[in-house]
Design a protein around this nucleic acid. Structure first.
Length: 489
RNA sequence: GGCGCUAUCGUCUAGGGGUUAGGACGUGAGAUUCUCAAUCUUAAAACACGGGUUCGAUUCCCGUUAGCGCUACCA
């Protein structure tokens, strides 16, 4: 029976294992959990599941925390570390031992492995046979006191079914006969996941367990423990997995899977969050607009307001980089320049670049560039000509628009004319160029395209005369005139 | 192998016993001409298959197929 909690009393957690960085699947689980907690006005807890000492590390924990912070996911309690809560798990095991729901198992890893292999060869399902069940508690205690090591296993009923209601998949039933007597406590006294997750979720009074669907088949093992402990069940909500383009589970093979690598690619956090939120979840009718297309762009507040467990999809979703890129352009373009600037500055720090223009000039320049930026990376690469005088010229652009020496000469001369222009604004710079083109008998477009390359280093840019005004008279004159030597080199 | 989950355009999805099956990304075509990676217009593109139930199934049920997950003293 699910707990009967008022919605505002919800307690949910994100419980990553620090055996790797924060990957996109984990990030989405965290997002959904966080969205649910915020939507219900409940509590969001962060718990680090570091009971696999071999593979866990402090560094990974920090990476995960950084990833969450970058995404704007904050937590109300924690981070708690399972490695520091060992007494809770042994206490839980003792309860289970005492109530006869668990027993000591003296089988060694080698023995188990051998039996598994034999069973597999015989075409049988490899499953622990429960042979240590019959060892009396007194005998077990004695053997342990004599120095034998033992693991503790849960005693799964031989028959019957274990059932629970999943908030996304509905009623789930598993035959107990399919389950083996799984290990709760390893022979070194360290709990397995199955034990620590139940002990902690109980101790931390979790009301909803939102996690990846890869845990669906494990859930009956946990339900059995809740029942053995006489505890009410939390509500489980399993979230389908994220797949790569080849429809296999997303992994390193598919390229970037770490959340922070998306930051490094110049993705802005809001874009990533919006994208992730709509991967495997849909606001359904809430996205409908009376006229026009369904909405796809949502602020965090809107996401929080609309989020619900029953909008979660039942099937796996393929991670779509193109759509992410689209979100990124939409968000970059919608930013207030003052809010975008710190992100750009961070990008410059990473690239070890220092702009030479003033903050005000830069702020005035950003709106021109936002429309065309695909990532924050553009601001530290193709857009550099707008922020200082050190920039590279795209060879393809050079080839396309400046391969004719006459054009280069004209542009140098045009630079001189601009030097003596009294009022350097858009209409006047354009008028001057068009008059000049007519005078020389060349097409204005040829000069415009050439000038664009000289001024910005690119063949693609905002309207040329807007760029000129943005750059300022001095720079325009200088770059147009410098073209001749630069190209000759 | 066993158990479980899933199946709507290439991808993310809406929908739901009677619909021209809606939107988004991407793709194609056109427009604009000062470039396009911007903008506008426009096109193509889906209910996996087979049985039921029903007057009628893409929708409900069963099966098949396919994909994914679990099947550790990992989490």
């Amino acid at each position: 029976m699910p707990m009967n909690t008022a919605l505002h009393d919800t307690r949910v957690r994100f419980a990553p294992s620090p055996t790797g960085y924060l990957h996109v699947g984990g990030a989405r689980t965290a997002l959904f959990s966080w969205l649910f907690a915020r939507h219900t006005g409940g509590t969001f807890v962060l718990r680090i599941e570091d009971t696999d000492f071999e593979r866990s590390s402090e560094e990974m924990v920090n990476g995960i925390l950084d990833g969450l912070r970058w995404l704007g996911i904050d937590w109300d309690e924690g981070p708690f570390y399972q490695s520091q809560r060992l007494p809770l798990y042994t206490a839980t095991v003792h309860k289970l031992l005492e109530s006869g729901h668990a027993y000591h198992c003296f089988c060694t890893r080698e023995e188990l492995e051998l039996r598994r292999a034999t069973a597999a060869e015989a075409g049988k399902t490899p499953r622990y046979d429960g042979r240590c069940r019959t060892i009396e508690a007194a005998e077990a205690t004695q053997r342990i006191s004599q120095g034998e090591t033992a693991a503790v296993r849960f005693m799964v009923p031989r028959d019957g079914v274990t059932a629970f209601d999943d908030a996304v998949f509905g009623r789930m039933e598993f035959a107990n006969a399919e389950l083996e007597d799984f290990v709760l406590l390893r022979s070194d006294g360290i709990p397995t996941y199955h034990l620590s997750v139940v002990a902690d979720d109980l101790d931390m009074r979790m009301t909803h367990i939102i996690r990846g669907a890869d845990h669906l088949s494990n859930t009956p093992k946990q339900v059995l423990q809740y029942q053995a402990l006489g505890a009410p069940l939390p509500i489980f909500a399993h979230v389908p997995l994220i797949l790569g383009p080849d429809k296999t589970r997303l992994s390193k093979r598919h390229g970037a899977t770490s959340v922070m690598s998306y930051k490094d690619m110049g993705i802005v956090p809001e874009a990533f969050r919006n994208f992730l939120a709509l991967l495997g979840w849909s606001p359904g009718e809430l996205a409908k607009q009376a006229d026009g297309p369904d909405r796809e762009l949502f602020s965090t507040d809107e996401l929080v307001r609309m989020f619900s467990l029953d909008g979660i999809a039942h099937s796996n979703a393929v991670f779509n980089n193109d759509k992410l890129a689209w979100y990124n352009t939409e968000y970059i373009r919608a930013y207030d320049p003052a809010r975008l600037l710190p992100l750009i500055e961070e990008e410059w720090r990473q690239a070890n670049y220092k702009p030479t223009r003033s903050r005000d000039e830069i702020l005035a320049t950003i709106p021109l560039l936002q429309q065309r930026a695909r990532s924050l990376k553009d601001f530290s690469s193709t857009f550099l000509a707008y922020f200082g005088d050190k920039f590279e010229v795209d060879p393809a652009a050079l080839q396309k628009f400046l391969s004719n020496p006459a054009v280069v000469d004209h542009l140098a001369e045009l630079g001189q004319r601009y030097a003596s222009l009294e009022v350097f604004d858009e209409p006047r710079t354009e008028q001057l160029l068009r008059d000049f083109a007519a005078e020389k008998g060349v097409k204005a477009g040829a000069l415009i395209n050439g000038a664009r390359v000289l001024l910005t280093g690119q063949s693609v840019a905002p309207s040329l005369f807007t760029v000129m005004v943005c750059l300022g008279q001095q720079r325009v004159v200088h770059r147009l005139q410098a073209g001749k030597q630069a190209i000759a080199l």
